[in-house]
Amino acid sequence: MEFPIAGVVVNPAFLASIGFVVGILGGFFGVGGGFIAGPMMFLAGVPMNFVVGTDLAHMTGKSIVAARRHRVLGHVDVRLGALMIIGTVVGVECGAQLVELFKRTGQANQIIGWAYVVIMLGVGAFTLTESLRAIRMIHTDKISAAEAVGFTGITRRVRLLRIKPMISLPASGIQSISLWVILLAGFISGVLAGFLGVGGGFIRMPMLVYVLGVPTHVAIGTDLFEIIFSAGFGTITHAIKGNVDILIALIMQTGAAIGAQIGAMSTRHFAGPRIRLWFSFLPFIGAALVIWRLVGTGASAAH
């Protein structure tokens, strides 16, 4: 079937299937899933400039479905999400400026690519180690899965910071935390998202759990809530530049809506540490795809 805006012929069932897979990942892990949807769309023949913008558009719709479902399940801390958006927006701009800085060196792709690999491998390895430790704690220490976090050092220190104004986040079970910590967490995840050119779910979800001490299920729902706004903003900016094929995004979203529902509902049947254990493999996949692209680029440049 022809999609005249992007000027490409793609099977709509294939697009809906991509959306379905990415929707499950998004609903279950609270990530945008651009690391899978992007390469798959490119594989289907969608031009690269349309891949990025269209992916953001479908991500917006999918996150609405998944976040709504998580909201019903009580997994969205709207207050936390809204506050983090402020820090994220500023951070994304700073990250984008950082990219411009590296562009002047002429090595932006290599620097950003390898930084992405290092950060993703770090996030993956850390989450894997922590979740395995938390699962062991459930069995050996007989503590509840909700309380089992294998690494609480940063959260404890963060909670000790008493820089006013202090706020409470009842939906996340946080009695008192400095507003600046939340803004800073949003800012850091925004810088990394803007610098690495990703949605930020990879970074934000672990940050919510390990830095702010938010329960895993709430971290997933809140992350999706934030993605609605960040991806929505990205959709507008890319669409104005002519990089979004809304028809492709709408078709992808039909599959993603189903997947997001399944993913979000499935979180009810898994404890936080188990979700984090599976989540830990996603950054490894993301890093592997970037390494493949970097090495591939290097190989093609050599010829």
């Binding site: 917006t60 479905v65 959709t235 507008i236 669409a239 979203q253």
Partner: peptide, 29 residues
């Protein structure tokens, strides 16, 4: 109509696109 909007006015196209995506998300759910 979307193709026409894309050619004539990208700002309106962007807003219409986002509105469609949001509406579809809410509708399907």
């Amino acid at each position: 109509p979307l193709q026409a909007l894309f050619r004539e006015n990208l700002t309106v196209y962007a807003l219409a696109g986002l509105a469609l995506i949001v509406a579809q998300g809410v509708l399907l759910e």
